[in-house]
Design a protein around this nucleic acid. Sequence first.
DNA 1: TTGTCGGCCGATCGCCGACAA
DNA 2: TTGTCGGCGATCGGCCGACAA
Lengths: 223, 223
Amino acid sequence: LDPQLWHACAGGMVRMPPMNSKVFYFPQGHAENAYDHVDFKNLPIPPMVLCRVLAIKYMADPESDEVFAKLRLIPLKDDDHDYGDGQEGNGFETNSEKTPSFAKTLTQSDANNGGGFSVPRYCAETIFPRLDYNAEPPVQTILAKDVHGDVWKFRHIYRGTPRRHLLTTGWSNFVNQKKLVAGDSIVFMRAESGDLCVGIRRAKRGGIGNGPDYSPGWNPIGG
Amino acid sequence: LDPQLWHACAGGMVRMPPMNSKVFYFPQGHAENAYDHVDFKNLPIPPMVLCRVLAIKYMADPESDEVFAKLRLIPLKDDDHDYGDGQEGNGFETNSEKTPSFAKTLTQSDANNGGGFSVPRYCAETIFPRLDYNAEPPVQTILAKDVHGDVWKFRHIYRGTPRRHLLTTGWSNFVNQKKLVAGDSIVFMRAESGDLCVGIRRAKRGGIGNGPDYSPGWNPIGG
DNA sequence: TTGTCGGCCGATCGCCGACAA
DNA sequence: TTGTCGGCGATCGGCCGACAA
């Protein structure tokens, strides 16, 4: 999976350590994420372990398209305090080689069957391929690659009074295949190759404050 | 799973040994059914083992509804030749306590989306609940339990010129849910309780002589 | 007796601009 | 600028008898 698309899907809050950098590994935090609750109090496991990042694998769930990463870590000896070996950055990757991307939380109208997708102007003008506004109506076919490399086709049209950008034909198929509902988010990104990519973020369900009422809104990524 | 429905789905060619009867177990035949090919030539396993049937479990695949059975066998000593202990029948169960059942291979018209199911007269008159032919048109709702105990609802009508029995509303839903195609078979059976039951037999696919051209036809079971 | 076909009617899908937040 | 709505035309599902094998 392309790291750029991975970061676009993960969102700006997610930072990854650079290769070969040093990180602290928290066994109990890891366990509590994977299981319900694990009591480390009586186990001979240190609360944190200084490690070096040997490998990073950017991945996406084949079913839900949700992204995650696998890190290969090797523990460093306690007395291995060579903080300044020059090879590594101390901070996180800033993803500053920014590829333009855009996320929008789906409204009821976006997710409704029989509806299209209302494309925020910023996304259409910044991320999508140039549209010929002289045509009547201005319309084009959009191809977008998802995290698995599958290509999705959409009809992109600029119409209505007042004028707005819409995805029509192909959109409802995408919603159904990906099982998207209002509150989920869609991510568009223009890769360095020029290809358009599409990813999704599922709304958190069932948690406190994550009821059926979602918060619609849009967020330029890493702005 | 009701043994009667199981036998109706399995078909008249399938006979099961009675409980406590003696059978020969063929390890290599078993292995070749489960795997591709197993070479027993250099293994210290006898070609057949005389066993006693301790238990029979009639089952159906949760996905495909296809039926199969699990037998619990215990090997008998070689010198255990008490053939005549009176408890057991020597032959197979004849399923002679016959519950009326009927199987039909689905035609293109049966399996087509948007079509109904053409009910052979014999099936409608022998298996289905009595239809009031004085009504205009003669129509009733049919409930049929599948191998999982799930109940399916069909509209059974007698119409057309010349008159014939059809399943309309509810049929295409059944076809889609069960992923039936032309060439598969459907089995109707009236249980001792009076309940109507429905099972399916998938057409063998991919084997020699099992091409897209199926052999339509109908077969009263155990006739 | 029953498999297949064309007709036809109603439901649904999905594209549209109007309108207002 | 964009979320929601009602309108409406096209498509599809699915019930029907005609007809012939």
